Amino acid sequence: MQTHLYLLLLAVGISAAPHMSSMAELLTLVQQMRASMARDSWDMRIETPDNIDDVNCVSTIFEGAEQLKTNAAMKNFSIFFQKFERLKQSLTPSPAKEVKCDTERKNAIIFVEKLMMFIRRNIKKARV
């Protein structure tokens, strides 16, 4: 019985590993994106959630990432946007009515900083 439990836990750990790896890679890419943006002058403004932990704001985060993706300077980070899009289903709460998310149009660099926090928090949630 203990062997079966051990194998089951091992299988669960292995299945979670790709998700954790993807999240860590996303975090690295978004940090590189932030550094690149800091070197350039950015006056693009993106709708940014006031509270990054609010489950009602997840779609706003993905919409902001889509808007960021349209900027020509972001073509070097196409891998980030592809990987982030693939994780959309696992990061988006189950289909329920989404309540209004409090947002404000902020500088793209501030949006990316909030995006980094969002990814970090999801890494922590996946570890638990």
Rank of each mutant, 00 (worst) to 15 (best):
M1A: 15
H4G: 03
H4L: 11
L8D: 02
L8V: 06
L9M: 11
A11D: 03
G13C: 04
S15Q: 12
S15A: 15
A17M: 07
A24R: 15
L26T: 07
L26K: 07
L26H: 13
L27E: 05
V30E: 04
Q32P: 00
Q32A: 01
M33K: 00
M33F: 06
S36C: 03
S36F: 13
A38G: 01
A38D: 07
R39Y: 03
W42R: 12
M44N: 06
M44W: 14
E47H: 10
D50M: 09
I52F: 12
D54L: 03
V55T: 05
N56L: 09
N56G: 01
C57K: 03
V58K: 11
V58I: 14
T60C: 06
I61R: 01
F62T: 02
F62L: 00
G64Y: 02
A65C: 06
E66G: 09
L68N: 08
L68H: 03
K69E: 12
K69L: 11
M74I: 03
K75D: 10
K75M: 07
K75E: 07
F77A: 00
F77H: 04
S78M: 10
I79E: 04
F84T: 05
R86H: 14
L91R: 12
L91K: 08
T92W: 14
T92N: 07
S94W: 12
S94G: 01
P95Y: 05
P95V: 13
P95G: 08
E98T: 15
K100I: 03
K100N: 14
D102F: 03
T103L: 00
T103P: 00
R105A: 07
A108Y: 15
I110N: 10
I110Q: 12
F111D: 04
V112R: 01
E113T: 11
K114I: 01
L115M: 09
L115Q: 14
M117G: 08
F118Y: 11
I119N: 04
I123A: 00
A126M: 08
